[in-house]
Amino acid sequence: MRVLFKAAAGILLAAAAVLPVSAQELSIMAPAGPGGGWDQTARSLQNALQTEKLATNVQVTNVPGAGGTIGLAQFVSQNKGKADALIVGGYVMVGAILTNNAPVTLDQVTPIARLTGEYEAIVVPTSSPIKTMGDLVAQLKADPGTVSWGGGSAGGTDHITVGLIAKAAGVDPTKINYIPFSGGGEALAAIVGGKVTAGISGYGEFEQQVKAGKLRVLAVSSPERLPNVDGPTLKESGIDVEVQNWRGVWAAPDITDEQKASLISMIEKVNASKTWQDTLATKGWANTFLAGDAFADVLKQEIEKTTAVLKEIGLVK
């Protein structure tokens, strides 16, 4: 009977119309389709806000397309001065705005906080003759064309990181032989199968293969060594590059300072809550929380750095 009841409750949760008791309403835009990273972040945020009673009725809307720039444009045009609207986004959006030459940029929204982040890892198959980051850089310097890098889409975090590595190693960034793959699985298969020289992506993508002894980590893009990762940082390997693929949340343009402060304090409460911490643990997201003006400053530097490297790779004119 208890089981039946549990199941029935599950169905009710799924099928019943939830009647809101309106106290504080909030809408969160995920500028991506259901299921992806930004969508999961938005829905996790929704769950934490409601469970911790920080807001009573939170709606998530999905506006997919063009690396989040379509959602961003819609968010800015529809929510000017509204204190009850948030948009989720991340480092990928910084690149997408630049490569797509998007008319609406992150300057037009109000930074609230950076929530989570992931560092990039550079890997080779275990059977590869390349043993260290030094070996890879030596080959890159000798003949950049022979080093094929497998990673995500052109102009994305992976591509930007390769550009930064080339630049730091004194190699012309326009000469890198970067091979973009559309899905994580396809790239990973090509890397494990030895179809490309090296692979680059968020460390989480590689973790299982590394543990199983199929891939070797040459370096990670974090400021310090990562716990549970057997590999040096890029800086230790003599490459002065640090990249974090982060996700954060912004509010609408033209909100008052009080409204902004209250939103920041709400997200700070979320970050401190058990619900959110549990979510981070189950999803394997690292907490790189940074709120308000500190986030805004970091964001500004990131945009400048990214613009420079994308111009050098030749993706932005």
């Binding site: 899905g183 299982q208 293969q209």
Partner: peptide
């Protein structure tokens, strides 16, 4: 066998595994 999500559906399945702290893969 490898933990490679090669389609959108497989990626969702991976998410389904992960909610129990299970990482599909060689192990």
């Amino acid at each position: 066998t490898l933990g490679l999500p090669t389609s959108a559906t497989a990626a969702m399945m991976l998410a389904g595994f992960q909610q129990y702290g299970i990482q599909p893969g060689p192990l």
